[in-house]
Simulated assay, not measured.
Amino acid sequence: MSDMERLHRIKYMIQQRKCVPIDDFLDELEISKATFKRDLEYLRSRLKASIVYDRFLNGYKFEFPDEIDKIEMPGLWFSEKEATALVLMQHLLSSLDQSGLIGPHIEPLTAIIDGILGQSETSAKELRKRIKVLGMGSRKNSIENFSEIGAALLKRNRLVIKYFAKGKGEETEREISPQRLIFYRENWYLDAYCHLRNDLRSFAVDGIRSAVLTNAKAQEVSDKDCHEHFAESYGIFSGKATQRAKLRFTPEHARWVAGEHWHGQQVGSFDKEGYYILEFDFNQDPELVMDILKHGSGVEVLGPATLKKRIKDELTKSLDKY
């Protein structure tokens, strides 16, 4: 943590909590008592911060809270538009994280942003209140495993994980070389080279029951190979594309689908009757089948024959239940 960042944190901790014991500063900032005293003196003498020690409350506070916004902290400065964009970015990031993986780690950012905005703090809080992000289909994940995964990605080391595959209902122990972390449809996934399968795999983070960081260096996979394996086919558990889907949407559904992103290399066009034809490559079809079924009678599968049969079988199963 830089000296300037530490000064900001001291100010914002007092601003947020009103009165802060010295041990809290030492623990959270990971500094010595001498360093804290030097920072405190700098804030008082150079930045004119009215920070005093309250013996009754046993902590440091602002003697004149109304003057907090007048303290000119060195560092970042933003225009009104930039400040608004900063608030939006932080709020959307925390709102999208319905699974609670990164929320606890970015909470301090909220206080820092509000402190940087100073007099605009009220507007920032009002802006957050007026913006709602509704996450659908997110699953609860493990914060501890998420931290281990992040460390492995940064250090480029391997992980030993216990992974529960929901589709098969089986748990396996694997050594993997993490490549990248993906936030897809409200959930987190880890793309990695699996040394058990000797191939690239995508793991749902909520399926990782335990993760242990090792000292072994990760096997690197080029961006090109990752793209070919994960991005050329449909869905998160894609693999290299082996088939091509061709879907025909009714004019009513076409108004929505024509503006949607189904695949990075999709091809779409309208016919003379207003129907929308959508084509893209895929490999595994479970995710694709679910997306097609959402449109009900508003979509027709033109190909391939195997996909048409899968959709027909699923519809038959649904009818048999009723």
Rank of each mutant, 00 (worst) to 15 (best):
S210N: 11
N198V: 04
C194I: 03
S222E: 06
R201M: 08
A216S: 13
A218N: 02
K217R: 11
L200E: 02
D223P: 15
K217L: 14
N215V: 13
I208Y: 00
Q219H: 14
S222I: 10
D225G: 10
E228H: 09
A216V: 13
C226M: 13
E220P: 00
G207Y: 01
V221R: 07
H195M: 02
S210I: 07
D206M: 06
Q219F: 13
R201N: 08
S222C: 12
C194H: 00
D206K: 01
E220L: 14
A211G: 07
G207W: 03
H227L: 08
R197W: 09
D191P: 06
R201P: 03
H229S: 05
C194R: 02
L190M: 07
H195C: 05
T214L: 11
V221F: 01
Y189P: 04
D223F: 12
S210G: 07
E228T: 10
N198F: 07
A218S: 13
T214W: 10
A204H: 00
S210M: 10
L190V: 10
Y189N: 01
N198P: 02
A211R: 03
S210L: 02
D225F: 03
K224I: 10
R201Q: 10
L200K: 13
A192V: 07
D199S: 15
A216P: 00
T214C: 11
Y189K: 02
N198M: 11
Y193I: 03
N215K: 14
C194A: 08
V212E: 13
D225R: 14
V212C: 09
H227W: 12
V212N: 09
L190D: 06
L196H: 10
L213A: 01
H195D: 04
V212G: 03
S222R: 14
T214E: 06
I208H: 05
R209V: 09
A192T: 04
L213H: 01
S222W: 07
H195A: 05
R209L: 12
A211L: 05
D223V: 10
N198R: 15
E220V: 13
D191W: 08
L190W: 07
H229C: 04
V221Q: 08
Q219P: 01
S202R: 00
T214Q: 05
G207Q: 03
C226G: 09
E220M: 15
C226A: 06
V221M: 13
D206Y: 06
A192D: 05
L190C: 09
D191C: 09
T214A: 11
G207L: 02
